[in-house]
């Protein structure tokens, strides 16, 4: 057990934890925008799968990872707008339409994979980039500054999301639309437009989350590659109290515990693997029970806006 707390192991845990957190961060930050504007998108996992497939397919066929990433963003945007159409314009029950979107993404990505790629292949994805100066820092350089660009992007997105939501006029509109759509509407804010934009942005980020899996972290595509990560991302939004920093905390907690349990299995073989595997989930549930402050939930979450009602 003592071996777990040596420097190389702690470095390894931190390094793995940061890698593992990447797709959760993109997806959960995107979902934060959607939910802050009042749209509950449960289809994140389906969008991630479509993003992962598109990125992989384009990178495989063009040799360009950046084109792959762009494809994932565009496909994610389209999927997000589809969700917006169904839940904002058609005012469908969001819990149900999100599940529909998930199944659509799961089925379509599998079908496309089977018909166009056929079998599992690996590609050379985004390689780790050692940042100048920072990468040479002792310890910290090893943990934080030797990752692929998509990993840096995920962590940079956190302050950016915070800034947009809390410090810009657009962020104010998003929050208003998610809290009091009728009031926002009466002040001339276009509720529909804001919600469309946020759900679309959520889609873009979910697509990139998928791409981070298929062309940066695992460098392959397989049917149901995400195996439910999109749903964890939705849970992380609740966990994080609809705040980007909270989402960051949740994603890091979940990923670090996951990385920790892998190392624990390696170094403490007498520990039952089943218990180790349960750890991230147990801890997340416990933290969720203790930490979540439901009063921060956007008041109009999952409620379609109807002018004149409310």
């Amino acid at each position: 057990m003592a071996e777990l707390f040596t420097l190389p192991v702690l470095l390894g845990i931190a390094f793995s934890g940061i890698r593992l957190a990447t797709p959760y961060l993109y997806a959960a930050l995107g979902e934060t925008f959607a939910q802050r504007s009042g749209v509950l998108n449960l289809g994140v996992d389906g969008i991630m799968l479509m993003g992962a497939f598109s990125a992989f397919f384009v990178a495989l066929n063009t040799g360009s990872l950046w084109l792959g990433l762009a494809a994932a963003a565009v496909v994610g945007l389209l999927m997000g707008l589809l969700m917006a159409l169904v839940s904002i314009t058609f005012k469908a029950e969001q819990g149900i339409s999100g599940i529909g979107l998930y199944m659509f993404g799961l089925g379509l990505s599998s079908l496309l994979f089977r018909t166009t790629v056929g079998t599992v292949k690996t590609i050379s994805g985004f390689q780790p980039v050692k940042l100048p100066l920072l990468g040479d820092l002792p310890i910290l350089g090893d943990i934080f500054f030797r990752h692929s660009l998509l990993v840096y992007g995920a962590f940079l997105a956190v302050p950016l999301a915070w800034f947009i939501l809390e410090r810009t006029t657009w962020g104010l509109k998003i929050r208003a639309v998610g809290q009091q759509p009728a009031a926002a509407d009466s002040l001339g804010v276009n509720v529909t437009a804001v919600r469309y934009a946020c759900t679309g942005l959520g889609g873009v980020l979910a697509g990139i989350a998928g791409a981070s899996l298929s062309i940066a972290l695992t460098n392959l595509f397989q049917e149901n590659l995400t195996s439910g990560q999109g749903f964890i991302a939705v849970a992380l939004v609740y966990f994080g109290g609809w705040r980007p920093l909270g989402v960051l905390g949740g994603a890091l907690l979940f990923s670090f515990v996951n990385a920790f349990q892998l190392w624990m299995q390696v170094l403490v073989p007498e520990m039952e693997a089943d218990i180790a595997v349960m750890l991230p989930y147990l801890l997340t549930i416990a933290a969720l029970a203790v930490a979540v402050n439901r009063t921060r939930q956007p008041a109009a979450l999952a409620k379609p806006f109807e002018r004149g009602e409310a």
């Binding site: 397989q222 149901n224 590659l225 990560q229 996951n258 892998l262 299995q265 693997a273």
Partner: peptide, 22 residues
């Protein structure tokens, strides 16, 4: 011999990280 189990037949991302850990 170090062994890890991911608890899933399909979780590719965690399997990748398990391999990185080894």
């Amino acid at each position: 011999i170090n062994a890890t189990w991911t608890g899933s037949f399909s979780d590719v991302a965690l399997m990748t990280e398990a391999a990185n850990t080894h």
